[in-house]
Computed example of a mutant assay.
Amino acid sequence: MAVTIKRVYDAPSPDDGFRVLVDRLWPRGLTRERAAVDHWAKDAAPSTELRRAYHRDGLPWEDFASAYRVELAANPAVDALRDELSRHPVATLLYSVHDAERNHAAVLLDVLEA
């Protein structure tokens, strides 16, 4: 299985394969049709507390990524997502934040591939 990440606001492409939104909140201003999401894995997203600490309170990226990895290690939604992704030859994890490098989907992808 080949899994990539992409911003949900970018136009859907046939190359995306199975599209999985990995945000806890639905992206602002985006309709379900325009998002073209096949599966919403909100339980695999960072906890509300961790998300707020990073986006609102200025938690450093390294601390966020480390704390998110701890959450993922104890989260049964990760195994469920891994199982769902294994059914598709190509999949894309979708996120809504602006930063293409420092986002939770990149951390989640790393954990899924480990």
Rank of each mutant, 00 (worst) to 15 (best):
A35R: 08
A35C: 09
A35I: 04
A36H: 13
A36E: 02
V37D: 03
V37W: 13
D38W: 12
H39P: 06
W40F: 12
A41T: 04
K42L: 10
K42E: 05
K42A: 12
D43M: 12
A44V: 14
A45L: 03
P46C: 01
P46H: 00
P46F: 01
S47C: 07
T48S: 11
E49C: 09
E49S: 11
L50K: 00
L50F: 08
R51L: 02
R51K: 07
R51Y: 08
R52F: 09
R52Y: 13
A53K: 05
A53Q: 12
Y54W: 13
R56T: 09
D57Y: 14
D57T: 13
D57G: 11
D57I: 10
D57M: 14
G58D: 09
L59N: 04
P60I: 10
W61M: 13
W61K: 10
E62K: 14
F64Y: 08
F64D: 00
A65C: 13
A65Q: 00
S66R: 15
S66W: 10
A67C: 09
Y68C: 05
Y68W: 10
R69C: 09
V70A: 15
V70P: 06
E71G: 12
E71R: 08
E71C: 11
L72Q: 02
L72Y: 05
L72C: 07
A73C: 08
A73G: 11
A73H: 07
A73M: 03
A73D: 13
A73Q: 12
A74I: 05
N75Q: 06
P76H: 03
P76S: 04
P76G: 05
P76I: 07
A77G: 02
V78W: 03
A80I: 06
L81H: 01
L81T: 03
L81I: 10
R82Y: 02
D83C: 12
D83K: 14
E84R: 15
E84K: 15
E84D: 09
L85F: 09
L85R: 03
L85A: 02
S86Y: 03
R87G: 12
H88C: 10
H88M: 07
P89C: 13
